[in-house]
């Protein structure tokens, strides 16, 4: 009897937690496609509309997001990988434990705090101002722990396999490291993709490091561009129906990007095993 009850209880919990998400995905597909089909595929490159004035696109913010993610990746990949290599190669060292712990703590930080700190240090302190570069710095700080932890986990496996082999063959230290990294490359790429998927959807840090103007295409490196999540946030808050429609379309685009990245990472990990 109790067995049946607990089955029912856990089943209900599972249904309660999965159905809102499925409902959300359905909503995104229906409402988002509605907007995109109504406007045409130019949705991805056109400018956003004026308030209350028909439909527009998300071209400016899509470009801004891609720019920020690119710069953030360029900053965070070297730092993440070198940390991961150090922790993996020196597993018993106390430093490695400390770095691992600090990285994991950074992982769960409220992202709003990171945005504020980057604002204080870079936008105000170093006078970089509010633009795509400052936002990319904030995003890279958010991305680093994700990439590092994933790379550590995956390189541990290739290290276990290839470390002794490498030294037995007489390879130098840097060549052994190259061997381990190249054999664990799916894991490293997975880490990078996971980090990128995380920062594609981050809003809070961008509120402090960019301006919320959505009509600027990139002119130079320091153009004040914005990103897709900020557009969704501002348009969701607004009272204009057409802006809500654009926000649904933008949310669908965001979901599509995240699902593609997520599927890629699962595909890569499965190939390893």
């Amino acid at each position: 009897m109790k067995d049946k009850l607990i089955f029912l209880f856990t089943l209900i919990c599972t249904l309660i937690i999965f159905s809102p998400f499925l409902w959300l995905v359905l909503d995104l597909i229906i409402k988002g496609l509605n907007t995109i089909i109504a406007y045409g595929i130019d949705f991805l490159i056109a400018e956003p509309p004026l308030p209350g004035d028909g439909l527009g696109g998300i071209g400016t913010v899509l470009e801004g997001t891609l720019f920020m993610v690119l710069i953030a990746s360029l900053i965070s990949i070297p730092i993440s990988l070198s940390t991961a290599v150090y922790v993996v190669m020196n597993e018993r060292s106390k430093f490695a434990f400390l770095f691992r712990f600090l990285t994991e703590s950074l992982l769960e930080f409220p992202t709003i705090i990171i945005g504020i700190s980057v604002f204080i240090i870079f936008a105000k302190g170093l006078k970089l101002g509010l633009n795509g570069i400052t936002a990319a710095i904030a995003l890279s700080i958010i991305m680093i722990p994700y990439t590092t932890i994933q790379a550590i986990e995956n390189m541990k496996q290739s290290r276990d396999k290839y470390l002794e082999t490498g030294y037995a063959l007489g390879l130098s230290d840097s060549n052994v490291i190259k061997l381990i990294v190249s054999e664990g490359r799916e894991g490293v790429i997975t880490g990078i993709l996971i980090g990128m998927a995380k920062i594609f959807g981050e809003t809070a840090p961008l509120l402090f490091t960019t301006v919320t103007s959505f009509n600027i295409f990139l002119k130079n490196l320091f153009s004040p561009v914005s990103a897709i999540p900020v557009l969704i946030f501002e348009y969701a808050f607004s009272p204009y129906e057409n802006w809500h429609d654009v926000a649904w379309g933008a949310s669908l685009t965001l979901m599509f990007i995240v699902i593609v990245l997520f599927t890629l990472t699962r595909f890569l990990i499965r190939r390893k095993i």
């Binding site: 409902w23 959300l24 959807g201 969704i232 946030f233 809500h244 965001l254 995240v258």
Partner: peptide
């Protein structure tokens, strides 16, 4: 996998959907 996808979904979309649908 579905669970992990839900965990890494952009939170802005949850908020937007929560406000207008849920």
């Amino acid at each position: 996998n579905l669970n992990d996808l839900m965990a890494s979904f952009p939170t802005i979309v949850y908020g937007f959907w929560g406000l207008y649908e849920l």
